[in-house]
């Protein structure tokens, strides 16, 4: 073998060895950045420590504004939609031996796991005909979860694309959204959502505990419009943020009464009379 031929052969072998050392497999996994991480953190902080300074009169105004906003948005079906997607994401995480609790520390003696989990949930549609679900007609929700250093990141995000669902769901539907004791509405959602897990991902939709921020288009019974809102869902209880004209945000919880939390204390307001104390 001549010297140049020998050098060429050595180079070829060097390439083979280098390729082998590199593993001949896919490269390093790049985790996507959580969108709007800073804004989400700021909103979560408001829910933890509301910024509006309230008195009785302002609390009454907040209660009134909250009622008006709830009636205006008419999105009491929305939490269950998100919770349902989270339950599916949880199942996929567990199937792959990945954590479903963002508070759980990484296993001390186990390898470091980084992962991107993407769940695509076809929406149930408005008429739910027999046969496989029609993604083109019904739309879908795609949710992304990240596991970094063996821990589930609290922030998940997703996109709802022309998602159609009934509220309440039709009997036998794969996705049951909200109570089923009143006539069904045709709901529609299209936009981006940020989800912040406040607890382990739910095994059933009703057990979800999370914060959601949504921007996009929603529609109920044919009336669609662009909206942006955020709320916390705590296993059936919904908290949402109401800006106060004098400054800051109050956090409102709707139940048998309207509970309002401000920076300087909490108030409870009657649903019918809006009297607060």
């Amino acid at each position: 073998m001549t010297a140049p031929a020998c050098v060429g052969a050595m180079r070829r072998w060097a390439l083979v060895v280098a390729a082998t050392a590199a593993g001949c497999g896919p490269g390093t996994l790049t985790l996507p950045e959580s969108p709007k991480a800073e804004e989400t953190a700021a909103l979560i902080a408001v829910y933890d420590m509301p910024t509006a300074v309230l008195d009785i009169d302002r609390a009454r105004q907040v209660a009134s504004d909250a009622q008006a906003r709830l009636a205006d948005l008419n999105v009491d079906w929305f939490p269950a939609l998100v919770s349902d997607a989270l339950a599916r994401a949880r199942r996929r995480l567990l199937d792959s031996g990945l954590p479903d609790d963002p508070a759980a520390p990484a296993e001390e003696s186990h390898p470091l796991v980084r992962a991107v989990v993407e769940v695509r949930r076809i929406c149930p549609g408005w008429d739910d005909p027999a046969g496989p679900p029609d993604a083109t007609m019904n739309g879908d929700v795609e949710l992304t979860a990240i596991v970094d250093a063996g821990r589930l990141e609290r922030e998940l995000w997703g996109v709802a694309s022309g998602c159609r669902l009934l509220h309440p769901a039709a009997a036998g539907s794969a996705v049951v959204v909200g109570p089923t004791d009143h006539p069904a509405l045709k709901a529609f959602v299209d936009g981006t959502l940020i989800v912040y897990a406040l607890a382990p991902l739910p095994d059933v939709p009703a057990a979800g505990q999370f914060f959601v921020s949504f921007e996009g288009t929603i529609g109920v019974s044919g009336a669609t419009r662009s909206v942006g809102f955020d709320f916390e869902y705590l296993a059936g209880t919904v908290k949402f943020r109401v800006p106060v004209p004098s400054g800051g945000d109050a956090i409102v919880t709707v139940g048998p009464t309207i509970a309002i939390q401000g920076a300087n204390g909490g108030f409870s307001c009657d649903l019918a009379t809006l009297t607060c104390q």
Binding site: V116, V117, E118
Partner: peptide
């Protein structure tokens, strides 16, 4: 109704 994908790296 649901498909899911996982892309993971173990170190």
């Amino acid at each position: 109704y649901t498909t899911a994908s996982v892309d993971a790296e173990l170190a």
